[in-house]
Write a protein that binds this DNA or RNA. Structure first.
Lengths: 285, 285
DNA sequence: TAATTTACGTAATTTTATTACACATCAAAG
DNA sequence: CTTTGATGTGTAATAAAATTACGTAAATTA
């Protein structure tokens, strides 16, 4: 749906290119940002080729012409470069690290938006709708994600609970059965305890939904996996982006469930919302 | 600093624009993507102004000329930020509501990135660094944010805890004193219980940090407020974006604290990270 | 309402991109 | 080795797009 990064496309195509096209490619790749700002003449001179060669190069990569190509290149850079170069430096000040962290979260979300499998989401919504009972499990940072999920899904009038205690998780998994859904959240998908819990749940006939990394042990153990590949490169020491992604995916799922329930369900949500009113100071608006 | 989204810049500048510049602005805002693909002539005609007017418009927004402007616009669009708030329709399917929700989260984050007060962040980091003890308080959805914060800040070797029990919060607030920091998270900032807890804490000489809406009762009661104005319009029935924003701001604060601690502190974080290794299945990479 | 500034458009100019075509290079077949 | 056809590349002409210079209209101020 969203186009792949142009830089990668060009890099991949490089070996199969003509002499002059390859020259152009190399010049562009060596400084893509400069390329977006030069005219066709400048670029042609830099690559020691003629202007029409540059033009042909552009058309080869599905652009209408040179300006269109520059546009596409610029877009690729905007979504790509931030990723690469936006790590927090030890000597950053507030003004630098604040936008960097927020940007990297934004980028991750944009990535997930373009990569997430819609049929899979649908499938999970199905599971959740049909569930007799839903358990949200997570450890560490994913524990609070699970808790948040509980806070969201209890509104659907379903028996929902969240647990971050491994023993509790094991016990619940072993007493569950058909119709029970165990929604397990784990960034790595490699935590032994969690995978074991998934195994126990499966062996008792429960459905296990894994919100976790693709191809991880947990992913393989789950009935349905919502896989999220979050490059946690921004930050070496604490989970950051993955939590956020998990939460947003849970928002998506909750929305999916709400929509499936149809408009008749809205009054119920309204009721919950109103129940909080007396706890609040009146808004001046 | 200069990462400000062009679309927002134009929107903000709109009221102060000349007649024809405003016309151009409106045409661009109504379909920014189309604008990046049109020639200056097309755009001028669409806006019923002359070509030089479009050109002047571009220069006003710090572009070298029309092509440069288009480039910048394209970059703004590509950086993951979709314009206008796209609300979920009752008859949306997975393919529609999934990107809508993610986009609206992205939008909100971009807004916060551009609006958040850096000095204020710095001030809060100061407080947290100097704290003898930190309590994270929240109710409902903010409860899990508080819990997440605990999970993040315990790594700094500080006595940290999180609480979502009102009575517990009251008791802790009343037994605190100078050097204690109460970090209170609340989307609305109008929950009576929470504001009262803040009041109690303040009256005992503790520092209260409010992560909440500007101008809310809680904001007024806090020693320092990190105010976040999140238009929770996307969704009537559940808090969505605000949670995420709170979490990301906590990421920012945690980063601030880490950087202040300096490089000597990294081994400690490394140690915590390594402590989890034995709980994991080995990665095949 | 006259003076002055600011806003806007017309038309000329310049820059930039594309097309048409011719020459060159290379590979395979004679 | 040619010859032939195919593909690749550049030159020059043409078209498109953007910018500039300049003049007139509108708005603002005194």
């Amino acid at each position: 749906m969203h186009s792949q990064n142009l830089i990668n496309v060009i890099t991949d195509a490089l070996p199969g290119l003509n002499k002059s096209e390859a020259k152009v490619a190399r010049v562009i790749l060596s400084d893509p940002d400069a390329a977006t700002q030069s005219s066709i003449a400048t670029l042609a001179k830099k690559a020691s080729v003629s202007e029409p060669s540059v033009n042909r190069f552009c058309k080869r990569f599905d652009a209408a012409g040179f300006p269109d190509f520059k546009l596409k290149l610029a877009k690729s850079l905007a979504s790509g470069i931030r990723f690469v170069n936006r790590n927090v430096d030890p000597d950053d000040d507030v003004g630098s690290y604040t936008p960097k962290i927020i940007d990297s979260t934004i980028n991750t979300l944009a990535l997930v938006r373009d990569k997430i499998s819609h049929p899979r989401v649908n499938q999970v919504v199905d599971c959740l709708i049909q569930a007799k009972r839903i358990y949200f499990f997570g450890l560490g940072a994913s524990g609070s994600v699970a808790r948040d999920a509980e806070n969201k899904f209890f509104r659907f009038n379903l028996p929902v609970s969240s647990h971050d205690d491994v023993l509790m998780q094991r016990m619940l998994a072993s007493t569950g059965g058909t119709g029970d859904v165990f929604f397990i959240i784990s960034h790595t998908g490699r935590t032994k305890e969690v995978v074991e819990v998934a195994e126990i749940a499966r062996s008792n006939g429960s459905t296990v939904i894994g919100l976790t990394a693709a191809d991880s042990p947990l992913a393989h153990m789950s009935s349905v996996t919502l896989d999220v590949d979050v490059p946690e490169n921004t930050d070496e020491y604490m989970p950051m982006a993955s939590r956020i992604v998990h939460l947003v995916i849970l928002d998506v799922l909750a929305t999916g469930v709400t929509l499936r329930r149809g408009p008749d369900f809205l009054p119920h949500l309204e009721k919950i919302k109103n129940s909080l009113k007396p706890t609040r100071y009146r808004s001046e608006s």
